[in-house]
Lab assay of single mutants.
Amino acid sequence: MEVRTIKVFTTVDNINLHTQVVDMSMTYGQQFGPTYLDGADVTKIKPHNSHEGKTFYVLPNDDTLRVEAFEYYHTTDPSFLGRYMSALNHTKKWKYPQVNGLTSIKWADNNCYLATALLTLQQIELKFNPPALQDAYYRARAGEAANFCALILAYCNKTVGELGDVRETMSYLFQHANLDSCKRVLNVVCKTCGQQQTTLKGVEAVMYMGTLSYEQFKKGVQIPCTCGKQATKYLVQQESPFVMMSAPPAQYELKHGTFTCASEYTGNYQCGHYKHITSKETLYCIDGALLTKSSEYKGPITDVFYKENSYTTTIK
């Protein structure tokens, strides 16, 4: 009895394709271990004539594949690729409408935090270190965002349907971005203890939790000093293409032309909904596939993004 075979390709990165001759009487799992086709788990399936010449994702289970996976995804987590594939199996079914010149995501599976993050990423200057993220990001900007969303979920250790947080998501993504040249110098002034300067680099240099107003941050924000008295913390120097200011959701007025974009969060910790506000020729609110415009805006804002380049204080 002759062994019926077909020729397929296996890959971990969709760049390096490895030619395989597979036995049609055995499952993919018996031949390769966990195997995925377009995100779908085909591990328990036997090869079919229609699979001839198709590319299958496999887990990096030998040295060659491990090197290829690390170079593309910059992670050695053995569960990463499987999590990416199972997320992709959902995100490829989502709709990605162009809204006001940006790629958004039609609401499904509690994905409003991903839509808000995706919209924000198209408006701030950011370059990702893992080629996987950078490639998928370019495709997302062009309207094909399924891979990018699935990668975000995998890097953030999230599953489809789980509630997510924009600030946490951005923080994970910033860790995989090139923020080497970003720098922030802060000064804390206390009447009792004097003053202390701190220099922050990388992710810490672009994120701040405690106030939404970048102007206020430049002037000074009140913080408790270690001595128990009130101290003032203010920005001395900022070198970065953008800054992200966050605070627990509270009524906040966004003035046209003073910011790049913002995240609105309605609801409580267990259950809520994100919308995205962007400042173009007027203010726009993007909620999944829905767009509304207004000249002014007041609502429960939790993150505001500002364009920056270089700032030095005039406070002496």
Rank of each mutant, 00 (worst) to 15 (best):
T5Y: 15
K7Q: 12
V12N: 04
V12Q: 11
D13Y: 10
I15S: 13
I15C: 10
L17D: 07
T19F: 09
V21A: 13
V22A: 14
D23M: 11
D23G: 10
M24C: 10
M26C: 14
M26R: 15
T27V: 11
Y28L: 07
G29V: 05
Q30V: 12
Q30N: 15
F32S: 04
P34T: 13
V42R: 04
V42N: 07
T43R: 12
K44Y: 15
I45E: 13
I45M: 13
N49E: 13
N49H: 12
S50A: 11
H51N: 07
H51R: 07
E52G: 11
T55P: 05
T55F: 04
F56L: 12
N61Q: 14
N61P: 09
D62S: 15
D63E: 11
D63M: 09
D63L: 10
L65P: 03
L65G: 09
L65E: 09
V67M: 15
E68Q: 10
F70K: 12
F70G: 07
F70H: 09
Y72H: 14
Y72W: 08
Y73P: 04
H74I: 09
H74W: 03
H74V: 02
T76Q: 14
D77E: 09
P78D: 10
L88G: 05
L88A: 07
L88K: 05
N89L: 13
H90Q: 13
H90C: 14
T91G: 01
K92G: 08
K92T: 08
K93Q: 12
K93Y: 13
Y96N: 04
Y96V: 07
P97I: 11
Q98M: 14
T103R: 05
S104R: 06
I105N: 06
I105E: 03
K106Y: 10
W107A: 05
D109I: 01
N111I: 00
N111L: 03
Y113R: 06
L114G: 08
T116S: 14
L118I: 08
L118W: 04
L119H: 13
L121Q: 09
Q122Y: 08
Q122R: 04
Q122G: 02
L126E: 01
K127E: 14
F128K: 06
F128C: 07
P130Y: 02
A132K: 14
L133N: 01
Q134W: 05
D135A: 08
A136E: 14
Y137T: 03
Y137V: 02
R141T: 09
G143C: 07
A146E: 09
C149T: 06
C149K: 01
A150L: 01
L151Q: 02
L153W: 01
L153V: 04
Y155M: 00
N157M: 09
K158L: 04
K158W: 03
V160C: 10
V160P: 13
G161W: 00
L163D: 13
E168W: 15
T169G: 09
T169A: 06
M170W: 02
Y172H: 12
F174L: 09
F174D: 02
N178H: 04
S181L: 08
R184F: 05
R184H: 00
L186P: 00
L186I: 14
N187A: 12
V188M: 10
K191V: 09
K191I: 07
T192D: 13
Q195L: 13
Q195V: 15
Q196Y: 13
Q196R: 14
Q197V: 12
Q197F: 07
K201S: 09
V203P: 10
E204R: 09
E204Y: 09
E204M: 11
A205P: 02
V206M: 01
M207T: 13
Y208E: 07
Y208C: 08
G210R: 07
G210H: 07
G210S: 00
L212R: 02
Y214I: 08
E215S: 07
F217E: 00
G220W: 00
G220P: 08
I223T: 10
I223V: 15
C225V: 03
T226R: 14
K229T: 14
Q230Y: 13
A231Y: 00
T232N: 03
Y234W: 06
L235E: 03
E239D: 08
E239T: 09
S240P: 03
P241M: 02
P241K: 10
M244Q: 02
M245A: 02
S246K: 00
S246D: 01
S246F: 00
P248Q: 11
A250Y: 10
Q251W: 11
Q251G: 09
Q251D: 13
K255R: 12
F259G: 01
T266G: 05
G267K: 15
N268T: 15
Y269I: 15
Q270F: 15
H276Q: 04
H276P: 06
S279T: 03
E281S: 04
L283V: 10
I286V: 07
D287P: 00
A289H: 13
A289C: 04
L291T: 15
T292M: 07
K298L: 11
K298W: 12
K298Q: 15
P300E: 14
I301N: 02
I301F: 05
T302N: 02
D303W: 00
V304D: 08
F305Y: 08
F305E: 01
F305M: 05
Y306N: 00
E308H: 02
S310M: 14
Y311R: 14
T313I: 10
